[in-house]
């Protein structure tokens, strides 16, 4: 399970690197808001790319509990499993 999540996290980082400052280190604990300073529209754009990549739909409730890249990877892993 852990490896699956790690792979997803790696993909999330790749997708993210396109839209954030390259000088920021993207780690599992990187916070979308306080570390990356993403605005709500940028978040939605990123979520869309993640959804398209994994062919999933992330609901608003799950997203409202996500703060870090690691947490998002967990949500994605759950959805991919189904």
């Amino acid at each position: 399970m852990a490896t699956q999540e790690e792979k997803i996290e790696e993909t999330l980082r790749e997708i993210l690197s396109g839209s954030v400052d390259s000088s920021v280190d993207l780690a599992s604990s990187t916070n979308f808001v306080s570390d990356l300073g993403l605005e709500s529209i940028q978040v939605l754009e990123f979520v869309m790319e993640v959804e398209e990549h994994f062919d999933i739909a992330i609901d608003m409730e799950s997203l409202s509990d996500v703060l870090t890249i690691g947490q998002l990877a967990k949500v994605v892993a759950e959805l991919v499993k189904d």
Binding site: F32, V33, L38, S40, V43, L63, S64, D65, V66, L67
Partner: peptide, 11 residues
Amino acid sequence: SSVQIGAHKAY
């Protein structure tokens, strides 16, 4: 109806 990322409680 819009909820921001990580903003469960605030919403």
